[in-house]
Simulated scan of single mutants.
Amino acid sequence: MRLAITHRTRYDFEEPVVHALQRLRLTPKSTSGQSVIEWKMTMEGARCELEYEDHNCNTTALLSVEPGVRQVEIECRGVIDTDDQAGVIGRHAGHLPIWHFAGQSSLTKPGSAMKSLVSGLSADRDRLQMLHELSSRVADCVKYETGFTTSETTAEEAVAAGHGVCQDHAHIFIGCARHIGVPARYVSGYLKMDDRTMQEAGHAWAEAFVPELGWVGFDISNGISPDARYVRVATGQDYKEAAPITGMSFGSNDDRVSVELEVMQQTVAQ
């Protein structure tokens, strides 16, 4: 499947900015199941100071905002070819050992609610089947609904609330998997919707390590393993390590963020 993606993020500042830095993880790589045909990032009101590969092998750009601006716009536009590999990414690669993804973070650390959620599950069972069951349990106990959580909400808090979004589903799944001894990681990226091309935000899911297969993806919110509609952009121990945009600013008391995202299928010429 050939997917065309346009992702535009705009910051409107109440007061002129004195100083601001942004870290961007918005550039997908050619990897198992996807090939980047083209990808370009442009910006207004800011400039790229440095581009590098972080410890999770994510392409990362550091931006500085031009002093005195009141608006910054970042646009990514590209074309990706994807294949349906039933969510299987394959062997582990990169700078970090697998055991790094077995340790909990502040966002994934389980409490009593999450520990109860994994009751009866064991990594000694058929691991793939067990992980699909875990995915179903998470979706059943945490209804997908916006407005109840933020990027700072922990997995345990989302379980207790009973509401959340894809980020929360991924954190809960990851924390539960790690609790029973399965390495797991967070994935941020894009999903082509079947009913529309315009979206309000990107998507998030989880990957867990299955010895005979390697890394395997689980989209808890949609109850499937990622297929050709998905584009992986960044991975990490949790959202903080794979967030599309993070940063800080000085000199403005308030800012508004708006996102325009279009993911659509293109016809491939024969």
Rank of each mutant, 00 (worst) to 15 (best):
N58F: 09
N58Y: 12
T59I: 14
T60S: 11
T60M: 11
T60H: 04
A61W: 06
L62W: 07
L62D: 11
L63H: 07
S64P: 00
V65H: 03
V65S: 00
V65D: 01
P67K: 11
G68S: 03
G68L: 06
G68P: 00
V69W: 12
V69R: 06
R70F: 03
Q71F: 02
V72P: 00
E73Q: 10
E73H: 04
I74C: 00
I74D: 00
E75Q: 14
E75N: 08
C76S: 12
C76N: 13
C76H: 02
R77V: 10
R77I: 02
G78N: 04
G78V: 08
V79T: 14
D81L: 15
D81Q: 12
D84E: 08
Q85V: 09
A86N: 09
A86V: 08
G87S: 06
V88E: 03
G90D: 01
G90Q: 06
R91W: 03
H92R: 09
H92C: 05
A93R: 10
G94A: 03
H95Y: 05
H95P: 07
L96C: 01
P97F: 09
I98A: 00
W99R: 14
W99Q: 12
W99E: 13
H100D: 08
H100L: 06
G103W: 06
S105Q: 11
S105C: 09
S106D: 08
S106K: 05
L107V: 00
T108H: 02
T108D: 02
T108C: 02
T108S: 06
K109V: 15
K109C: 11
P110A: 01
P110E: 00
G111M: 03
G111E: 04
S112E: 13
S112M: 10
S112A: 14
A113M: 05
A113G: 03
M114K: 06
K115V: 04
S116K: 12
S116W: 11
S119E: 15
S119H: 10
G120P: 11
L121Y: 00
S122V: 14
S122F: 05
S122L: 10
A123G: 04
A123W: 01
A123M: 08
A123V: 04
A123Y: 00
D124V: 12
D124H: 13
R125Y: 13
D126R: 07
L128I: 04
L128C: 07
L128H: 10
L128T: 09
M130A: 12
M130R: 05
H132M: 13
L134H: 03
S135F: 02
S136H: 11
S136Q: 15
S136D: 14
S136R: 12
R137M: 09
R137K: 14
R137L: 07
R137G: 12
V138Y: 07
V138D: 03
C141L: 13
C141T: 15
V142K: 03
K143S: 10
K143D: 07
K143N: 07
Y144M: 09
Y144K: 08
Y144L: 13
E145M: 13
T146R: 15
G147M: 07
F148L: 13
T149A: 12
T149D: 13
T149M: 10
T149N: 14
T150M: 04
E152L: 15
E152R: 15
E152T: 14
T153W: 10
T153K: 08
T153Q: 05
T153V: 06
T154F: 02
A155N: 06
E156C: 02
E157K: 08
E157A: 14
E157R: 11
A158D: 08
V159S: 01
V159R: 00
V159P: 05
V159C: 11
